[in-house]
């Protein structure tokens, strides 16, 4: 869903850049002094994983492909603010080194995939988690559903920007974007749940805010 140069109008890109810059500034402020020695390398590895996983385009119906986004995954693992910073890092490298996503559209791409996808997805995840009884099943259900929502919501934001730019009418571009990304979102849900499940087995402490951790003695510790 990386928007290239030329798809969006100047005012839309400028407005998206302003919103993104404010959100990233807030994320820096919120995260400043926060990462401890454990979390800093985790941010790096999370960015490396998201970058690598985003390259794996999987074919879907209709001659189209989709790939992992990872914004919700980063938000669950690192918290929403550090998650946004990881997404911005990945998106900036993709734009400057790999010409994936235009330089003029970088604010729009950060807004759609980092902020709408990451923050919106995390908000949905917390909301769903609050509705469900506390259990591993609920955690994965909320993660999967929110992962699907994060991709679909990002595609809605992208469609709105395309329509506001006069590139394609909303009545055409909105259903088209939602249609294809609702399918890609299923892949997002599967990959997010698989990655979280692997982490819950290898480093359960990283998900202790959401999943009960079994201690050395076999006792279950829960963090509030």
């Amino acid at each position: 869903m990386h928007i290239p140069d030329g798809f969006l109008s100047g005012p839309v890109n400028l407005a998206a850049f302003a919103v993104s810059a404010a959100a990233v500034g807030l994320a820096v402020k919120k995260t400043n002094g926060d990462p401890n020695e454990k979390e800093v390398p985790l941010m790096g590895v999370c960015a490396a994983f998201i970058f690598a996983a985003q390259m794996l385009n999987f074919p879907i119906a209709g001659g189209t492909s989709g790939h992992f986004l990872g914004a919700l995954f980063a938000a669950i693992l690192l918290g929403p603010w550090a998650g946004i910073l990881v997404m911005v890092t990945v998106l900036a490298i993709q734009c400057l080194i790999f010409s994936d996503g235009g330089l003029t559209a970088v604010g729009s791409n950060v807004l759609n995939m980092g902020i709408v996808g990451g923050f919106g997805g995390f908000w949905a995840f917390r909301f769903l988690l609050g509705l469900l009884p506390r259990s591993p099943k609920s955690f994965y259900a909320a993660s999967g559903l929110a992962a699907w929502l994060s991709v679909t919501a990002a595609s809605v934001a992208c469609a709105l920007e395309l329509a506001w730019s006069g590139t394609s009418p909303l009545r055409i571009v909105l259903p088209a974007m939602i249609g294809v990304h609702a399918v890609i979102g299923v892949g997002e849900a599967v990959i997010t749940c698989c990655a979280l499940s692997a982490i819950s087995k290898l480093r359960p402490d990283l998900l202790s805010a959401y999943l009960p951790v079994r201690g050395e003695s076999g006792a279950i510790h829960e963090q509030a």
Partner: peptide
């Protein structure tokens, strides 16, 4: 294969707008 946005751009005739990169 083209990704979701690329496919939508191809189908609805605006993919040529994105051919020149600024960077």
């Amino acid at each position: 294969r083209p990704d979701g946005l690329e496919k939508v751009a191809e189908t609805h005739g605006f993919s040529e707008k994105g051919e020149t990169a600024a960077w």
